[in-house]
Design a protein around this nucleic acid. Structure first.
Length: 490
RNA sequence: GGCGACGUAGCCAAGUGGUAAGGCAGAGGUCUGCAAAACCUUUAUUCAGCGGUUCAAAUCCGCUCGUCGCCUCCA
């Protein structure tokens, strides 16, 4: 088994070989908890949720750590704006984060450390950096002496000269060099503070990840992940801190996911175009959002728009339709001798797991993996149709059931197809019905009227009923089991 | 200005040296009283453009054009 993952550090796909065989240690940068999570956060959460589920499905033990930044300038500023305590604010948005994650069906990380609960670890780490001459106290703050760290820039591919050419860093007289970054900030009046050898203050942003990853995963561990915007400076600085303090390699593989854009622009507070998870889930079920997010490989940018989400929903419906059909087939297993599925078709159904895994092994290529799922749906639909006409052969049914079970098992890796297919379709119908001006009883009455007309072969009357229903966006399907209806989207 | 990514059908999106997955939308057909759903067939001689390497390139190299991101808090 070879799982290849793109490593930002080497700019190549590399075969995943955990330090400890069979055990992957993963650290992901979580949120700064001062505001509602947006769909960019959802992408981050779901990408790593998928990666963890897949690695586990593949038989790895995974230790997944994702932190909360619960002390930071943004939190303090927001708390001041709202006249609340910064700790209270941070706690509140951690709770909201969990609500969102639950709504998305995202697994909890195994360890979810908070920065404020690891101040001693950070202080120890800063102390080590000072000892090694890589950091210096200045006026109540402590800074990292970036030029003393030879590999600075190795992750983002930057060189000092280049960075300085375009640097837009604040002028700060306390720093020896404008590129130096803060490890410890001396407290200003009224700010939250902890005591330290350098006076009262609080940690800089980057130090928490170095301290907490070391505590829970060790100085060197397998994968460190986050959004692409964290490459510089956050992850670059983490490397400087961790390698500088530990004198051994830090994360061996860096995984960075692409952004969600809205109308081709990066979401940002300043542009006012960010969409919260809460808002999006009001409009679309979590599985639709997941299917949408996984329709593109995680490193590529992804544009959020109505059309894309609608397409995703149509696709999801199609898979559930297929599963529901097969479930219904189960109930009328027949005793026909001859299998109707060819050996080749049977093989293809059985090969789904392997095909899916091949796609996922290639840097979690969910787009390709979904393609395999849809291929299987097509095949299963075809087979189900064959069996629907006549009593099924037991072997065929077994193949179909296995195919459906595989579909659901693989879907679960992406957090999809977790619902009972019949329930999913019923719920969807109810939701759509709520937006339509007819009740189910009224619809059934009209259908009965139409069927009576069809009995008489009064096609004019029959079509009139259908047209009437269509004005209410109700569409009928005449099947062997009678007439069913659905709400037409659009 | 520096660094990096991307540009594949109407739209979304795989494919990274061997002759273009998949989804959505569209067209034709089977089924149906007619429909719908499902299924079948079909929709890129071509992968931004131009050169080069190779028996062979969407895939490698160079240049041009275009889009986006990072360099400041950011998933």
């Amino acid at each position: 088994m070879n799982i290849k993952i793109y490593n930002t550090l080497s700019k190549k796909k590399e075969i995943l070989k955990p330090l400890e065989e069979g055990h992957v240690r993963l650290y992901v940068c979580g949120i700064t908890s001062y505001d509602w999570c947006h769909i960019g956060h959802a992408r981050s959460a779901l990408v790593f949720d998928m990666a963890v589920r897949y690695l586990r499905w593949r038989g790895f033990q995974v230790t997944f750590v994702r932190n909360f930044t619960d002390i930071d300038d943004k939190i303090i500023n927001r708390a001041n704006e709202q006249g609340v305590d910064s700790k209270e604010l941070a706690e509140r948005f951690i709770a909201e984060f969990y609500t969102d994650m639950d709504a998305l069906g995202a697994l909890r990380a195994d360890i979810e450390p908070k920065a404020t609960e690891h101040i001693p670890e950070m202080i120890a780490l800063i102390g080590q950096l000072i000892e090694r001459g890589l950091a210096y106290p200045a006026g109540g703050d402590v800074y990292y002496r970036v030029r003393s760290f030879a590999d600075y820039g190795c992750l983002s591919g930057r060189k000092f000269e280049e960075m300085q050419a375009g640097a837009r860093v604040d002028v700060n007289e306390q720093k020896e060099d404008p590129m130096d970054f803060v490890l410890w900030k001396g407290a200003k009046p009224g700010e939250p503070k902890w005591s330290s050898p350098w006076g009262e203050g609080r940690p800089g942003w980057h130090i928490e990840c170095s301290a907490m990853s070391r505590k829970y995963l060790g100085a060197t561990f397998d994968i460190h992940g986050g959004g692409m915007d964290l490459i510089f400076p956050h992850h670059e600085n983490e490397i400087a801190q961790s390698v500088g303090a530990n004198c051994q390699p830090f994360a061996r593989l860096w995984m960075h996911h692409g952004f969600v854009t809205v109308k081709e622009e990066k979401m940002s507070k300043s542009l006012g175009n960010f969409l919260t998870i809460r808002e999006v889930l009001k409009q679309w079920p979590a599985e639709v959002l997941r299917l949408f997010l996984f329709s593109t490989q995680y490193r590529n940018p992804l544009d959020y728009n109505e059309t894309a989400l609608r397409d995703a929903e149509t696709g999801l419906d199609r898979i559930y339709d297929c599963l529901a059909k097969i479930a219904a087939l189960d109930e009328k297993a027949g005793g026909v001798e001859q299998p109707r599925l060819s050996g080749k078709e049977r093989e293809k159904i059985a090969g789904l797991r392997e095909q899916f895994a091949a796609a996922m092994d290639n840097d979690f290529n969910t787009a390709q993996a979904l393609g395999q799922l849809f291929d299987a749906v097509k095949l299963l639909n075809k087979a189900a149709r064959l069996l629907l006409d006549q009593p099924g052969n037991a072997e065929d049914l077994a193949a179909l059931r296995q195919g459906a079970a595989d579909l659901r098992e693989l879907g679960a890796i992406l957090g999809l197809l977790g619902q009972n297919p019949a329930d999913y379709l019923r719920r969807k119908k109810e939701k759509l019905l709520a937006a339509v001006s007819l009740t189910e009883a009224q619809i059934n009455e009209l259908i009965a009227r139409r069927n009576a007309a069809r009995e008489r072969k009064d096609w004019v009357a029959s079509d009139a009923v259908r047209d009437e229903l269509l004005t209410h966006k109700i569409e009928m399907q005449d099947g062997p089991e009678g007439t069913t209806w659905s709400v037409k989207v659009l």
